[in-house]
Write a protein that binds this DNA or RNA. Structure first.
Length: 276
DNA sequence: ATCCAGGCGTTTA
DNA sequence: TAAACGCATGGA
């Protein structure tokens, strides 16, 4: 068991819709970092964390939850540029640094979909094709390995019941099959170039590409504008020309435009909160 | 029953 | 070239 300081909003960040394999059970939060199952207990001043592999766990957890970044400072900067953000920013929200392959696949599934069903589908993918792990007498399934993923065909993916998205995944996996280092190489590009490359893949549009970069590559200058963020933005801007709006947002918020948009998303989605 | 969900690709006017 | 439309599925 390790202890980390409770100075961020684990629950809110976990269930904000950025990750899909989290759950809460019997007073504990669970999430999975690659091959490690995390079981987390929230206490007043600390989070207590157990895992099937606790080697170097503290560092891995700090990295995953992005605890080394000074969000308070960034937020102060954002508010100084746009006082409207004051009522919607959250100094305790964190953008997790998740697995690139997992984000690549998960956010293709996310399109025209809701968080609950995305979660069900991603978990199903893991149960069908991922490695089983036993932790504290309970079974968990890891996200499938790259080898396993690129071996999957359309019939395999049909089992997920994700409709038209299955063929997009097969197509995207073709890219990884041709170049297993595609995502690592993508990390060498700037966000604009990475967007261009990702959206050149059939089935990956600007929204999905932004989320992959934001949550898999920690690019806070991406533009994850979904239906919720649009609802917020439509109150202040004419969103009929999305590219023009993105330019204005970047001018306003700079390299943290994605984080600013994330606050809008959280605010709008939580306001309507129907546990979706 | 109709609408919508962390949209995208294709067709149409 | 922008707007409209179809797409699979399931929950509200």
């Amino acid at each position: 068991m390790i202890k980390i300081v409770n100075n961020f909003d684990l629950k809110g960040s976990l269930f904000s819709g950025q990750c899909f394999r989290m759950f809460e059970n019997d007073g504990y939060f669970y999430t999975i970092i690659k091959d490690r199952i995390l079981k987390i207990k929230e206490e007043k001043e600390y989070y207590l964390i157990w895992s099937n592999n606790e080697d170097n766990l503290k560092e891995i957890v700090h990295n995953y939850f992005d605890l080394n970044r000074d969000y308070k400072k960034i937020n102060k900067e954002l508010v100084s540029k746009d006082s409207f953000l004051k009522e919607i920013i959250n100094d305790k929200h964190r953008i997790f640094r998740q697995d690139k392959v997992e984000m690549f696949i998960s956010y293709i599934i996310s399109q025209n979909n809701n968080v609950k069903r995305i979660s069900t589908s991603v978990n199903k993918l893991c149960e069908l094709f991922g490695k089983k792990i036993i932790f504290e007498n309970t079974e968990y399934y890891l996200f499938p390995s790259l080898d396993k993923l690129i071996s999957l065909n359309i019939e395999d993916l049909n089992l997920l019941k994700i409709g038209f998205r299955d063929k997009y995944i097969v197509n995207a996996l073709e890219v990884l099959k041709k170049n297993r280092n595609f995502l690592e190489e993508l990390d060498e590009l700037n966000t604009y170039e990475a967007m261009e490359l990702l959206t050149s893949i059939k089935g990956i549009g600007p929204k999905v590409a932004s989320c992959i970069l934001m949550f898999g590559f920690s690019r806070l200058d991406a533009y994850p504008i979904d239906t919720w963020a649009k609802k917020y933005l439509s109150k202040r801007y004419n969103i009929s020309n999305l590219d023009e709006l993105k330019k204005r947002l970047h001018d306003l918020y700079g390299d943290y435009v994605g984080l600013a948009i994330q606050y809008m998303y959280n605010y709008e989605r939580n306001e309507k909160s129907t546990i979706n």
